[in-house]
Design a protein around this nucleic acid. Structure first.
Lengths: 208, 208, 208, 208
DNA sequence: AATGAATGAGTTTTCATTCAT
DNA sequence: GATGAATGAAAACTCATTCAT
């Protein structure tokens, strides 16, 4: 499942697939957080959105904090269709990986609002911060491998510093996403995509 | 007053300047938001921190929402000591402007935590978003002028696209700041500063 | 104020004396605990009984635990009219002190039900236990002085061990009170009073 | 089974005797009440402690109230090993009967905490009060017989009033037990045992 | 201008109880 | 017989806001 599927409207979900109650709840939480923020989301809203009683929500998940942590985990546990591209050129894989973070659908917008809310909360919550750091490390490793491969394939310039490139790229992605959300008049999806593409270009080998 | 002065410890403040009660409150709010988040900050906390009663807080500012908007405005109303550098080389001015966003002091950390909280809230509040967009536009204009100047002075490469450079730079700054906050184990201040410096280097004219 | 005044019916109170809101609440709590037990008393009941809102109760007292502790303190803070008897014979003072613990009025019954509830809770709450122990120590000291005086005045037998007498007497009082409450069919007030009187008799000097 | 066996640690129990599920539950309830109080004990705790589901607890016993009443009955249904002492001197039998109420083991402490909780609840529950009164009557009868025998055997003074002695003794026992629990700093087990012993001494015939 | 007591709606959470399996 | 998911009412507590002083 991709983030788009998580953040699509609730009513579309039950029809298509048989999902456990637990997942229904987490999906509802993700959408509610994207829409109202963590503190703006009440347990009653969760219960209503999931079609359960508040008692049941607290029966499954011990309390709101645990519920939110679980929702975070769930949202970030995108199995990703990366394997399908395994034999494609590295640059294509990078572009694909990046595209996941674009703003092409409403689902994407919700994902990023969720992410922003998460980030703001994690800034004050050591546990969330730790688990986020872990995910970031994985993401970093993944992009590092891609860029490494791209460099060896001569798709990317041989003189780039891989680690620096990864960290800069990931910061750029998050920064552009944030700007798209809160400076949406100044930075629109097309603009953000263009800037990212320009950054990628700066990494490709110049015509000898 | 710079952001550092807003977010330094409260006791340091009263000594230096005579400030109106209103400003005391706003400063208290800014620090409380950085520490507890918007929803995590109660009006009573504000009152206590400002040495006033809750009644008075609501008397000055109509309600919490207005108070927060005022605090946002206040924090972003940094007069900035940019003029002092007016005659320095453009690159130095850029470096100085960027340094304001670094993480060298605890005040800086608080500033970014405030910013993150602000961003998350603005994502769901059109009014905040609008006023933020306005500020972003001003910031953009300022950096644009600097980079323009730098290009004309041949400090920067003549082939860079100024608008793209500004947007990329600002996104990078925000992205790196976010990472420093929530991926603090992976991205520390020195690393972030280094990556920004590397980005600047990529803008300088290569030795012919 | 004596325990009888604390535990009389609420409506009688407001008429007679001007009492602070705080005391109104504590009196309501004492009566509610006597009637429903600590866990059986809800904050809403307290609020209703005191003619305030739940918010106000939590505004005065930080939470239920603090409220209960305050109620305990209040109930036990009987100024007592002991001084009035200062010059009377020791035995008369003892009899008077004991009579406070008798069951002559409904107020007394409530007082003992409150005490029993308190004791049960204190058995599991170190803080309550500590403060109770302190009160017990004071009570012990008071009776010790009385019995000492009685022995010196030759009202009481010279061969009694004062400490043992005090501890036995106080245990007997509490035991008889408990029996009157929960074995009310077997042990009634008159019986309990008689048994206490017999115990006192055993302390008086036998006719030489 | 004696009270000591009910209140000893759970793991020791299963080994020795084969007991029905019902009894397992009641034992768990007794211990939970001693530890957390009646209202502090949840049905889920009972289920967990008994290794059953909440559904099963409510299936065996109709509801919490019934369960608690059953637990009370169970705890008080001590067959007692009194018969073993049938031919011993009355005073020895009395001392033995009293020793059951001492505080020599952790099991005893739990028993008394249970008793205190029971008493507090019975003070507000006519049904519990009635069944307790019945037990008290039995206990009274038992001690009456012992003291009667002791008097006839000339172990005890002939001039004591048997009924008064019984009621005083039982009140003293309960009072001392309560004091040991909630005034544990002032009244320890050794002290309580000593005071009881002194009371017994006052009943024995003085050397002519 | 300033207070802080008072409010009451709203929140999270607990828990005895039910019931389909 | 036995389960445990699900309930919904009730609990304690919070908090922005009001208002008499």
């Amino acid at each position: 499942m991709t983030s788009e599927e998580i953040f699509k409207d609730a009513q579309d979900l039950t029809a298509r697939e048989v999902s456990s109650r637990r997942v229904d709840v987490l999906r509802a939480v993700a959408n509610l957080i994207a829409e109202h923020g963590i503190d703006g989301m009440s347990m009653r809203q969760v219960a209503d959105a999931a079609g359960l009683s508040t008692g049941t929500i607290n029966y499954y998940f011990r309390n709101k904090q645990t519920l939110i942590a679980a929702a975070m985990d769930y949202v970030y546990s995108l199995p990703a269709d990366r394997d399908a591209l395994r034999n494609k050129p590295a640059l294509e894989q990078i572009r694909n990986a990046i595209s996941i973070f674009s703003f092409t659908t409403e689902g994407h917008r919700r994902w990023w609002r969720f992410w922003l809310e998460y980030a703001a909360r994690a800034a004050r919550d050591q546990d969330l911060m730790d688990s986020h750091d872990e995910r970031y490390t994985r993401q970093r490793r993944y992009f590092r491998a891609l860029i490494d491969a791209g460099r060896e394939d001569r798709e990317l310039r041989p003189d780039i510093d891989v680690d620096e490139t990864v960290d800069t790229l990931l910061a750029l992605i998050d920064g552009l996403a944030t700007h798209q959300i809160i400076n949406s008049r100044s930075v629109n999806p097309a603009r953000a995509a263009h800037l990212l593409e320009r950054f990628l270009e700066s990494l490709t080998a110049p015509p000898a």
